[in-house]
């Protein structure tokens, strides 16, 4: 199987730690260096994509603003774990960007499609 590009895997909720922002920074840098990049949202990471966030009341920057710039950086492949969404009672239409749903059985193949996986 041919493999190319970098998969950035993010599994943390948006504001309890810097993980979400740190993962986005890595993905954006991959794009700047013209590396094909896929973002994979797993576990609580799916909360990062919820619309209508207002973190300014806790002194945080809104991730939605950066997320909406992802297509401009040519980061078009955003994969979301179907089971992670379902476990949290979330629906695809509650997310800020169009995503590709991936069920658990398809995750190994998704990882194998990429040359490197960076977990943040």
């Amino acid at each position: 199987m041919s493999t190319e590009g970098i998969l950035v895997m993010t599994r943390s909720a948006p504001y309890g730690s810097s993980a979400a922002r740190d993962a986005l920074d890595v993905a954006l840098t991959c794009s700047v260096f013209e590396q094909p990049v896929t973002l994979l949202f797993l576990d609580d990471g799916v909360f990062q994509l919820l619309k209508g966030q207002s973190p300014s009341v806790i002194g945080q920057k809104n991730l939605n603003a950066v997320q909406q710039s992802l297509p401009l950086y040519d980061i078009k492949r955003l994969c979301v774990s179907t089971s992670s969404l379902e476990q949290r009672g979330l629906r695809q239409d509650e997310l800020i960007l169009p995503v590709e749903l991936v069920d658990d059985a398809a995750l190994p193949a998704l990882l194998a499609q990429h040359r490197h996986v960076l977990s943040i």
Partner: peptide
């Protein structure tokens, strides 16, 4: 140095192994 050095390391390396993610 910048995050570009991480991406360059991915380009140059056969394997990239991460320690201490998810904290």
């Amino acid at each position: 140095s910048g995050l570009g050095q991480l991406v360059e390391a991915c380009i140059q390396s056969d394997r990239v192994v991460t320690f201490g993610a998810r904290s």
